[in-house]
Structure formats: structure tokens, C-alpha cells
Design a protein around this nucleic acid. Structure first.
Lengths: 195, 195
DNA sequence: TGCCCCTGCCTAATAGTTTTAGGCAAATCT
DNA sequence: AGATTTGCCTAAAACTATTAGGCAGGGGCA
């Protein structure tokens, strides 16, 4: 009786909100059913299972971040683009900690390949065109940037930088500055050393 | 009957092994009881609850990593020390993915302050004495290194770098190289710009 | 050696989550 | 309106977490 109008999309969005409120690992089929004031079994017509639900939330988060990144990069290049992209991730994580955690979910290769994850990689690569890197070095740099962004954001979010001066905003601008410097002066591959 | 000899320490170690085998979030009081061939309730005399168990595993992992780091840093400085420390985290994460995940557990401030986490921060700072950084910049650099190490390791572990050439070992040495270069040429704080 | 007591592991019970199977009624189509 | 689809429900089984209380094994003591 009284159909609520559940769909996979509504469940995913509500799940994302729930994640931001109580943490991604607290997102449970039961909790979501409560939120819709509906019996638990009803959700299983729309999502295959708990894992499926979480995957959908992860994909939503990845897509949202990619959209923001695309917006942020439009019309920018060089350091400006670097800072804009960096801030996309950091801001998103602070506004949506649960979604950000969801985006870290390990996806199976098929799902990952079809996700917005590839857009992220492409955008980072596009950003690097503003610097002067040869092809293999570009990949190294993509990975470095991904590591710094993700590492910084997750440590900051996890409280790893708490209660220590100077504040994390200051560090953040200095880190971006440092990355910009580094990309401008990317060290050449070490020459073979003989044993 | 047949006392097995449970203690908090044995449970913690077994929990850590279990984490490495099946993943940290699959570490459950029930699974641990099964592993000791003991009823679930029996564990509750030794650990307060599931959260307590997980916290103990996290503390174990942090301590183990700090021990390895201390060993690795002994007698090294500069880039050699940087590479050694970086490899400690990466190697530990690859040998003990479950423990590494445990170490990411959010600890309450009290527990965190009493954990080996502070040793990690101290060692990173010690490493930076081999470079020429003023005090506030040292903190920024500590955070940057922590971000890169953690970010790289967790992305690599999560498959974020998979199936793309060049391989991740090569990127890793280039990233360390890049960090070394960066620390040698740390950009000065930007001068105030007027609006 | 025998007794006592403590502690360790047990049984029992409650509660929450996940998942499947099958039913009834509301919405939709003809 | 009648038929069909489909959305949400009840019921039930399995697993996890946690608490309360019981029994017996092993160490300490005479």
C-alpha cells in the first residue's frame, strides 16, 4: 500500500546523503529503508544487494567530482588549473565526507573502467599539458598528483593533521605551490648506474 | 572446558592476520572466535567489543610500522633516508594490507595521542633535518610526505594504478626522486599580494 | 593430596542486518 | 472494466554483536 516511489536513483541519492550524515560504512540497507519508512525487503527490487547499493553511491560520487572538476578546469591552465582541481577534491571531501569515502570503494575492473574514474585521469592528464613533460613522465606525474590529493584530503579528513599549528589551509596552498614548482622542474629520469 | 588461552594480545595478533587474509572490514568478533574454535561470547572477556578489537589491531599496525621505520632510518640521511622511509610504508602495506587498512582507522584523540602515530610524525621530522627547511615549512613538508606516502600506497593497493604502463615500481622511484628534488628546492612562502 | 576459589569459556537470550521467496494490492494498459 | 504488471509487504533463515549468568578446570593454600 501507499507506494513511495522507490527507484535505484532515489535510493542511491538518499544513500549518499545518509553517508554524509553518518559515515559511509554506516550506510546500510536497513537504515535506508527506515529513511523511506519502508520495509527492508522492498529495497531489493531496486538494488541487487548491499554491495550494489554501495557501488552505486561510489559511482555517483565519482561522477559528481568529475563534473565539478570539469567545471573547475574550464578556461584555466597551469598553476591556476592545478589549484582549481586540487580544491575540487578537497572541497568535495569536506562537503561530502561520506560520498568521498564511497568514492574510495574498491570497484571491480569492469565497473571501474565504466566509471567516471577514467574522466578524472583524463582531466589530470589534460592539466599536465600546461607543463612540459614527456609521455612516461606524464603518467608518473598523474599518479603523484592523485596520491597527493587523495592522501592529503583523507589524512585531513581523518584528523591526521588536527591540533597542530600551522593550520591546514596554509599547508594546502604551500603544497599546491610546491607541486607547481615540481612540475615546472621535473627531474629527468636517473641515468643507469653501473654496479 | 579445554581452555585455549585467549588473551587480548593473542586476539589482536590473530585479528591482524585475519585482516591481512580477508580484509580489515571483514574482521569480526565471530570470525575471530571461529579461528580459535571458541564461542563468540568468550572473546568478550578479553576485548570490550568489536570497536575495541579493531582499535587494538590499528595500534598494533601503527607500532609495527613505526618499528620498521626506526630501523630503516637508522644510519641514513637525505635521499637515502627518504627512500627508506617511503619503502617502509609501501612494503608494509603490500605485505600486510589488512593491517595497513587498520592503521587508517579513525582513533579518538586520546588514543591517537598515545599511539605510535606520534613516533611516525617525529621520524618524518627527523628525516627532514637532512634538508634545509625553516620551522613552519618543515610542518608543511611533513604533511606533504605523509600525504604522498599514504595516498600512493592506498591508491596502488586499491588498484587505482592498475593495468596501465609504466609499472608502479618505476613511478615509485620517480616520485621519491621528485620529492627529494622538491625538498632541496622548497619554494619560499609566496609574498603577500595586494588586491 | 585434597579443598577452595577465581577465572575462562560456555549456554542462553536479545537485538540488528542481510537476503530470499512468495503474496496482495495499486497502478497501468487495453 | 478487466487483465497484467509491478511495487511494497509478510515471513523466514542466516549471520553478527552484545549481555547475563553458569559450570568446571587449574592454581593457591593447607
Amino acid at each position: 500500500m501507499a507506494r513511495v516511489g522507490l527507484t535505484a536513483e532515489r535510493l542511491t541519492r538518499a544513500g549518499a546523503e545518509l553517508a554524509d550524515e553518518v559515515g559511509f560504512d554506516q550506510v546500510t540497507v536497513s537504515a535506508l529503508a527506515r529513511r523511506f519508512d519502508v520495509k527492508v525487503a522492498s529495497l531489493y527490487s531496486h538494488v541487487r544487494n548491499s554491495q550494489d547499493l554501495k557501488t552505486r553511491i561510489a559511482l555517483l560520487a565519482l561522477a559528481e567530482m568529475a563534473d565539478r572538476a570539469a567545471d573547475a578546469l574550464a578556461g584555466r591552465s597551469g598553476k591556476e588549473a592545478l589549484a582549481a582541481l586540487a580544491n575540487v577534491y578537497r572541497d568535495y571531501a569536506r562537503e561530502h565526507p561520506g560520498r568521498y569515502a564511497a568514492a574510495q570503494l574498491r570497484l571491480d575492473p569492469q565497473t571501474a573502467a565504466a566509471s567516471a574514474g577514467v574522466r578524472h585521469a583524463r582531466m589530470t592528464r589534460a592539466l599536465l599539458r600546461g607543463y612540459d613533460l614527456t609521455e612516461p613522465d606524464q603518467t608518473h606525474a598523474v599518479r603523484l598528483l592523485g596520491s597527493v590529493f587523495h592522501g592529503y584530503v583523507s589524512l585531513e579528513l581523518g584528523g591526521g593533521f588536527s591540533h597542530s599549528a600551522p593550520d591546514t589551509d596554509e599547508t594546502w596552498v604551500r603544497v599546491i605551490d610546491a607541486l607547481d614548482t615540481l612540475l615546472r622542474n621535473w627531474p629527468p629520469p636517473p641515468t643507469e648506474t653501473q654496479g
